[in-house]
Design a binder for these strands. Structure first.
Lengths: 234, 234
DNA sequence: CTGTATCCGGATCGATACTG
DNA sequence: CAGTATCGATCCGGATACAG
């Protein structure tokens, strides 16, 4: 049997929204704002292309996603329909609930720095930086070689895996757990800096203003945790 | 691989909330208010006991459900923890979204009258009825024999599959689709009554006040549908 | 009544290879 | 680059039987 065989609205929503990976695909579309196939896939790197393709077709079928042929020839863009747009607040609420009650603090397993960078890319506050091009070099201690160095080029928000060659304005050095914990709000930035778990090197002004322009997770970092389940700030 | 391997709050919520049947179990606990194993199962009649048992243990493990030994000997009660309580609004929002954009009108497949009655049981407005015991007999045309007759005893809200023997105050006769459609808000009660798709027989006052005391779905029947997807009131 | 253990079939997913 | 086809292993869930 495929669905649930119930006329209840929640049951029918579950048939569409709860298949494997589907919630994360919707997150990419509704909360991160990705539109291209490969951009979506960067947000769900462990998902195979074939399954992503299938899920996008299913979401199209369900009236949540609309596929548009791109004008410049190859490939498509995946846009949310009005129904899909209204899923944004729904998934935000799920995330907030999870942040309050469920989410494991990141100190246990090594987080994926590629994923972290892919999201950080969108949360750096460009308008708190000097105008003009800016290159931020992130170095992760103890990560796999391919996941140790990232260059973020602003204001384009281009994320590179090799030095783009424009020169580096500031280097941020950390281990994967610490920077992820800070970005998710599990660890106070001031603590990480004073412990030298995050080290900054570059123009004096950029270093000093780091807390201003390095944005945390816009939705979850400020979520209020219940006193029975405080944030771990170890 | 079991989970999603991401530190994202939504991904971790999905690991817990989106396994098969789990959303419906949460609906029973958070929105319908069932506490006993068999009551929960009446809300998800196609789910096997063994799987329900397993899911309840998983939800306990996740900190959403708390199992309490009943004082009167046999069995347990399943209560929501504070985390579980806060899922109520989340699932209500999912249901409202689904009602607006997704839910198929019930006219296609034969709805389960047992399920309908199990929910109607809780939405009849007892305080709009005369005080004292009241027996409502529901008769469904064209349903399977075991799903054709129900007696609802108020104010206890006991649902019986055979005549409890107190006498019947009012009989409601309909086909499964019509009564379900009315209860879900897909079909106006006045229309169904004037078409004689719902027939009432009993005390004159009870018949006349039927629209007052027969409550519709408290959350979904009044949801506003977008003009691009109006309610079918056929 | 209130669940729980086990076992087997089949859907589903992940890997791989491949095309416009 | 942007997907799609195929195929086999895995895991999940449904049925059945059974225990407290």
């Amino acid at each position: 049997m495929k669905g649930y065989g119930q006329f209840c609205a929640i049951a029918q929503a579950a048939e569409v929204l709860t298949e494997r990976w589907t919630p994360l695909v919707i997150r990419e579309l509704a909360l991160t704002g990705s539109r291209r196939f490969n951009d979506i896939q960067r947000g769900v790197p462990l998902m195979s292309s074939s399954l992503l393709s299938k899920r996008l077709r299913q979401l199209e079928q369900a009236g949540i996603v609309e596929r548009r042929q791109r004008s410049d020839g190859k490939g498509s863009e995946y846009h949310l329909t009005p129904a899909g747009e209204e899923l944004g607040p729904v998934f935000a609420q799920i995330g907030i609930w999870s942040e309050r009650w469920l989410r494991r603090p990141i100190f246990e397993e090594m987080p994926d720095t590629g994923l972290l960078m892919w999201w950080v890319r969108t949360t750096v506050k460009t308008d708190a930086l000097p105008t003009g091009r800016m290159v931020i070099h992130f170095r992760f201690r103890g990560a796999a070689a391919k996941l140790s160095n990232f260059w973020l080029v602003l204001p384009e928000a281009d994320l590179c895996l090799s030095d783009p060659g424009f020169g580096v304005d500031i280097t941020v050095r950390s281990d994967p757990k610490t920077l992820t914990a800070v970005w998710m709000g599990d660890l106070a930035l001031a603590v990480a800096l004073s412990n030298r778990d995050i080290e900054l090197e570059g123009h004096r002004d950029l270093v000093r203003s780091f807390p201003k322009w390095f944005g945390l997770h816009p939705l979850f970092a400020s979520v209020d945790h219940p006193s029975s389940r405080p944030r771990v700030t170890a």
